[in-house]
Design a protein around this nucleic acid. Sequence first.
RNA 1: GCCGAUGUAGCUCAGCUGGCCAGAGCAGCUGAUUUGUAAUCAGCUGGUCGGCGGUUCGAAUCCGUCCAUCGGCUCCA
Length: 645
Amino acid sequence: MTINIILPDNSVRQYPTGISGLEIARSISEGLARNVLAARVNGEVWDATRPIPSDSRLQLLTWDDEDGKAAFWHSSAHLMAEAVEQLYPGSRFGIGPDIENGFYYDIDLGEHVISDSDFAAIEAKMLEFAREKQAFTRKEVSKSEAIAYFREKGDEYKLELLAELEDGQITFYETGRFTDLCRGPHLPDTSFIKAVKITSVAGAYWRGDEKRKQLTRLYGITFPKQQMLTDYLTLLEEARKRDHRKLGKELELFTFSQRVGQGLPLWLPKGAQLREKLESFLKKVQRKAGYVQVISPHIGQKELYITSGHYEKYGKDSFRPISTPVEGEEFFLKPMNCPHHCELYRNKPYSYKDLPVRFAEFGTVYRYEQSGELHGLTRVRGFTQDDAHIFCRPDQVKDEFIGVIDIVLHIFRALEFKDFTAQISLRDPENKEKYIGSDENWEKAEQAILEAVQEKGLIATVVKGEAAFYGPKLDFMVKDAIGRKWQLGTIQVDYNLPERFELEYTGSDNEKHRPVMIHRAPFGSMERFVAVLIEHCAGNFPLWLTPDQVVILPISDKFQDYARAVRDSLEQADIRALLDERNEKIGRKIRDAELKKIPYMLVVGEQEAAGSTVSVRKHGTGDLGSMTTEAFTDMVAREVALAAV
RNA sequence: GCCGAUGUAGCUCAGCUGGCCAGAGCAGCUGAUUUGUAAUCAGCUGGUCGGCGGUUCGAAUCCGUCCAUCGGCUCCA
């Protein structure tokens, strides 16, 4: 009996029934066979060793295929589990998936505690088992057999997972001494795994539920070649150099003080300069888009947040209320700007002709984030949103939404953020009580977002259950230096606050109508945006943004006067210039300026003073030769203008 | 908040299993040098070793606790 196998190039080959992907690979070339990690059979990823029963389309997966890599790492999780079980008998296992960079396994170690000093032993055990070339053996089992096995083993986690599976779809995989409930697929055997690194250990709640037991999550990564691990670790090392916490310190952008408080950033002069540039850039964009600036105070009465619904939802997790000499009077630090903006809207009656009204404010808000959540500038307790609230008619929602998407994309383009993702967050249809507002309004809002995104041709993932409690949203996310995703820009439709604040406008029918509100922040928060920006450009900010654009380096004291004259003329032209007056050699001044990542260095000495020129050196590039001060000024002005900001 | 780790001068770090006055480089200060494209030389200053408590004849080192930071989990209006 033979079957037809269609390969990716559409060629058809005949093989005996029950041949495996691996055997087919071997029939093509021994080299291919050595690299085959898994097989895609009719679109489904299978073990390379699994017999193919009938005519099929086959793709052999190697390290270069995401699915091949996934099988590799998932198999590595099993290998790690086997090692852990040998080292710490009685361990029970939760789940052990592959992830973007490697894999993890959630393990209940009983009384045992694993710390990084144990990693080496686990790695050694894994390599030992890898060399044993243990096969991953797939076994179909009945549900009752499976339950019996894990009951015998006393693994309540696997039993819980089993309870959700149906009979007939349950498979076990055996690797050496370790048997796991697993769908697969897996590598043919463990010998493919040549390099192993346990990367970290952390607590993780079983099934992500804070109320359930915390298991030990062991993270690891493996490779088919030792060199690949070395390269990966080097890459990580490089990424850490871009970390905004490190660069923020080195470039004197911001700092934290224990005395001021956890999660409360202090912006140093250079950081403040940078942030101000970003703010004025956005203000200009917004002015053109019809926004008006407003200003509101940092606190608001308790009643304001009772009206908005925030008190009920977050009152307990906020900073403690501020009391006053008046009995019963309480104020809150504002955790959001929208309630204040609603009151601004209520200042006067609006006609349908007045809408949309767009109130913008760089509003500083305070939220009592859990201490374990705080992280550099990306997660803080006091931060400034580039906030605005658009009050519009229901028929304007989509256009306004589109307008905001345009602003976000404009900003990303200006700052060369190419690698972002967009996510539409809808409510969880199973848990409607988590949200405020009517079904009808939610449906209208979600529809508006979906349509706007579609019209802009934006590629966005849709996630149910991620909406804010008052409305659905569209978020823009960017990754940081070490691959963590952060939300930056956000656009949120809100039918609820206008209701709660009884906002109105008079329609053409002379009747009162309720406006729709759109919350939006293209940067998200200045803190987080600056953090991501720092990591994105590794501290080499675009010329128009960078705190110090130019530094003037006199060859010696003798040329201080000329150097000052150059600086003054640059400042006249609105160029931010420093003067290095230290009594140091030129090599030293250049080195320090390079380390400070200042875009342009102007060396001035005898020749320059004589000819009214400057000798220009560009950061990271080197000597550009000399030119007149005017020519340099023009060059900088042009470069700034070119950024189109 | 939870799990694990870390915490020595402004910065980066050394100080092993407890024992002379706690060290280095950079930064800073003083002086010399007057310099041509990534570190000039010399001298000096600077630390209640994260805070508090304990064990000990003796603690940066061991234990407890609190605080902060780091990696995750949960959360994120």
